[in-house]
Amino acid sequence: MEKENLSSLQVYFSSDYGKFRFLHGNRDLNTAKVNRIAESVQNGLDLFRYCPIMVNKDGYIIDGQHRFAACRELKMKVFYVIVPDFTLRQIAEMNQNASKWKDKDYVNCYIDTGNIHYVTLREFTDKYQLNLGIAVSLLMEGKVKGIRRIDIMRDGLFKATFLDSATKFMEVARQFRDHFESYRSRNFLQALEILTASKEFNLTEFIDKLNLHSLKIENRQSHKEYLTHMEDLYNYRNSKRKRIY
């Protein structure tokens, strides 16, 4: 038999359960599975020391949260190895249930690690009930549709650089909520972004006209169609048509 080599990997153990933390977005704890593991241990099959859980340097459990829960329930030592170089993105990719990770789970994970930019992202998204992708673009680039930023967000590199301008823009968009249920849709917001940048467009005048004549904005398939539609509404009962973008 080939001579065995000794690994330099250190296996630690601890009874301080508070030092271990669960990741948002990781697989949900299955109580039945925890109970099965605990029952096997009570029947003499204690292999915890040979199957240590994996944690990162901050104590987040990367793999083995059911074994950890069983150890905690049985008041046994937790055996673990530390993998310091794993990012949250890599954790999601290696997890057998990685497909369960949603973008909001990445946000929650980075919030757990104390990243204030992700706190801002969640607060902004919740406040305006926005699609996360739109919120990321507005906060990172200051525009509705920018370069694909979701991957950057998943990698923990999101920065809420344009919070003030994004907030001002969404407050403008909110003025349309009584006239259009889908005012938070990407296509509508893209059209509104173009209008608010135009010197020919008067927001107050437009809102007043919608209110005065009880006009409603209708769903359209693209931001260009929204622009044409809103220009029609803007010129409702005008004797002379005015271009607004």
Rank of each mutant, 00 (worst) to 15 (best):
F22C: 06
I111G: 00
N43V: 02
L192P: 07
N219K: 12
R177S: 13
I53T: 07
G133H: 11
N235R: 04
R184W: 06
L163E: 11
T87F: 02
D112M: 10
D46L: 02
H229M: 09
I116M: 06
T161V: 13
T161S: 11
Y12H: 14
A70W: 02
W101M: 09
V11P: 02
F86P: 00
Y236I: 05
N95T: 08
Q175P: 01
D178H: 12
K33S: 07
S165M: 12
A160E: 02
Y106M: 03
F176K: 08
I152L: 13
E193M: 09
K216C: 02
Y17D: 03
F162H: 15
S185D: 14
E171T: 09
Q129R: 12
L23A: 08
A69Y: 04
T113W: 00
V107Q: 00
R220D: 07
S185F: 10
T87Y: 03
F158Y: 11
Y110N: 02
T120D: 05
G156F: 05
G18R: 11
F20R: 05
K57C: 06
S222E: 09
L138K: 10
L203G: 10
N187E: 15
T228D: 12
T113S: 06
D112Y: 01
S182W: 13
G146E: 04
V119M: 04
K168Y: 08
N30K: 13
F180D: 11
D112Q: 14
L138Y: 12
M76S: 06
E73P: 00
L227I: 15
L215G: 01
G44D: 11
L227W: 04
L9D: 02
L23T: 03
A166F: 00
R49W: 01
R72Q: 15
V78S: 00
R237I: 04
D164M: 07
N211C: 06
Y12M: 03
A69Q: 11
L29V: 12
V83E: 08
N95P: 03
L138T: 14
T204L: 14
R154S: 05
L233F: 05
A92Q: 06
F124M: 05
R27G: 10
L121Q: 00
A160Y: 04
V136T: 14
T161C: 03
Q65S: 10
H66C: 13
F68W: 01
H179E: 10
F201V: 09
V81C: 06
R72C: 08
V107E: 00
K33G: 00
P52Y: 02
E205L: 12
V172Q: 09
F48R: 12
V78N: 01
V144A: 07
I147N: 11
L132Q: 06
Y236M: 04
L132E: 05
D178Y: 11
H179S: 14
S8F: 08
K77W: 00
A70G: 08
S99W: 11
K209R: 15
V34N: 01
D105T: 11
Y226H: 11
A160R: 04
L9C: 04
G64C: 07
R89C: 02
F22V: 03
R67F: 02
A135S: 15
N26Q: 15
F206N: 10
V41G: 06
K168I: 05
D103E: 12
S40M: 09
T31P: 06
F13H: 13
D85G: 11
Q129V: 04
Y106T: 05
W101A: 02
P52R: 01
V144M: 09
D232G: 10
